[in-house]
């Protein structure tokens, strides 16, 4: 699956290099096949796809606080990033993929997982594996609800984070 991963990187790069408009939906990577069939179903019933993201954000207490404390420092409170230094995360293909495993790998391992694509921006993102599974699940849920295009409302669970943490690299 190396080819697929490279394709995702290129798409991500394309998405990140556009600072304003989120990428067209057609440009987002194809939804990955469920990479983690072993994952327990989300504790909250799968939402009817168009549920209000705000409600779901409220269902992930702590996600906004983690975002403000950790993520917004570099990616800015509105997700707009800093030209040349840190990418905008609005509409990021990594966040917009319905399967959260790509996003979780990025959070846990930092920009090292982006490979060559990371060179589009000067600064490195450190691995945030010092955060707990619950904190990462909460912030992943929050950024998916706020920055994914279209917004993703299904909560990310600590169990999904644990799977990403146990995996050596990107999902297959």
């Amino acid at each position: 699956m190396k080819i697929v991963a490279s394709g995702l990187l290129i798409l991500t790069l394309a998405a990140c290099s556009k600072q304003e408009a989120p990428p067209a939906i057609a440009a987002a990577p194809a939804p990955a096949k469920p990479a983690t069939p072993a994952v327990a179903p989300a504790p909250i019933a799968a939402p009817a796809a168009i549920a209000a993201p705000v409600a779901e954000i409220a269902a992930a207490p702590g996600g906004e606080a983690v975002f403000k404390k950790i993520c917004a420092t570099c990616h800015m409170a509105d997700g707009s990033g800093v030209p040349y230094l840190q990418p905008s995360i609005k509409g990021s293909a990594w966040i917009s993929n319905p399967d959260p495993q790509l996003l979780l790998s990025l959070i846990l391992r930092g920009s090292a997982v982006l490979g060559e694509a990371a060179k589009a921006y000067d600064n490195d993102m450190p691995p945030l594996d010092n955060l707990s599974d619950a904190e990462i699940a909460a912030v992943a849920t929050y950024v998916r609800g706020r920055f994914a295009a279209p917004p993703l409302t299904e909560p990310v669970t600590p169990a999904q984070v644990a799977i990403a943490r146990a995996r050596p690299g990107l999902p297959e």
Binding site: C74, G110, A112, N123, D124, P126, P127, L128, N130
Partner: peptide
């Protein structure tokens, strides 16, 4: 090092 810019670096 690899945790540059992270809490506890």
């Amino acid at each position: 090092g690899k945790n540059d810019r992270r809490e506890g670096a």
